[in-house]
């Protein structure tokens, strides 16, 4: 060491310190991610989403609306009343509506066509807040729970399904708003995070599968079960876009893009998140 000139020693010291700092930050980051994973695993025991699932099942089977009929004739794509595995194949094209629908849009359709609600009433209050619980979130919790463990298999074979996918992909990359954001801003790179929440890289198969198959989810921080429609609604709010309309065509197209990219993965929701 004494043979080295003084500036070289200083440079070596600086390099070593910088290296130690970088390694330290990387280790701290890994450690934080591990701890968050442990926290989530601990929460899995006794997920309050079960309460929404149970209420949703009652709502599904109960005669409701002006026509006093249940959802048991509602066709989610696998035949009237078939709930098991239906969510893993949504969104899809429905010939009776001549359009592509996601789960919530199809529930609205059944509420209008079978139960006799007006469309405005069926779309009212899609997201719960405090004492005001949303029937839509409960119904979505029940239906999605019936696909737990089922492999995602969104076909994308009908021309309208293919169109929805292409539009959804364009929307994913659409930059706008006061902060020049796109979905891709947060979801097209690895290891991104907002506070404690990992942001999956939705441009990769693994990220798309992990991101899509864990919604709906019970949000501990909100005390509510949140659907995929809510996920999109709140992402756009955070992007400072105007308000995304519930069950709108853009929401369905984006869902089609993300759901189809998750094909092959076992559906694993309702989950629980921070």
């Amino acid at each position: 060491m004494s043979k080295l000139p003084r500036p070289a020693v200083i440079r070596l010291g600086a390099v070593a310190s910088a290296l130690a700092l970088v390694v330290g930050v990387a280790l701290a980051q890994t450690s934080a991610i591990d701890e968050i994973a442990k926290y989530r695993a601990a929460l899995q025991d006794g997920n309050p989403a079960e309460l929404w699932e149970a209420r949703g099942e009652l709502l599904w089977k109960e005669p409701r609306g002006p026509n006093k009929v249940s959802f048991q004739k509602c066709d989610l794509g696998l035949g009237p009343g078939v709930v098991k595995g239906a969510y893993a194949q949504l969104p899809r094209y429905f010939a009776d509506a001549d359009r592509v629908m996601d789960l919530e849009t199809r529930i609205v359709w059944c509420m209008v066509k079978l139960q006799g609600f007006t469309e405005a009433d069926a779309k009212k209050n899609p997201f719960g807040a405090g004492e005001r619980k949303a029937d839509m979130e409960a119904l979505a919790a029940y239906v999605t729970s019936e696909s737990r463990g089922v492999k995602m298999n969104v076909a994308g074979t009908h021309p309208k399904e293919r169109e929805a996918y292409r539009l959804g992909e364009k929307m994913f990359w659409f930059r706008g708003g006061s902060h020049d954001f796109a979905c891709a801003t947060c979801h097209s790179a690895d290891s991104q995070r907002i506070r404690l929440q990992d942001l999956p890289n939705l441009t990769k198969k693994e990220g798309a599968q992990k991101g899509y198959t864990t919604w709906p989810a019970y949000r501990v921080s909100q005390g509510e079960l949140r659907t995929f429609q809510w996920r999109l609604y709140d992402c756009f709010r955070q992007q400072r876009f105007p308000e995304l309309e519930f069950a709108s065509d853009a929401s369905i197209a984006l869902t089609m893009f993300l759901a189809q990219n998750a094909n092959g993965a076992a559906f694993d929701a309702p989950a629980i998140k921070r």
Binding site: L167, F174, F236, P242, E245, S248, D249, A250, A253
Partner: peptide
């Protein structure tokens, strides 16, 4: 896509 987006927000 732009047209559908604009019709889907308020």
């Amino acid at each position: 896509a732009t047209q559908v987006l604009k019709a889907s927000f308020k």
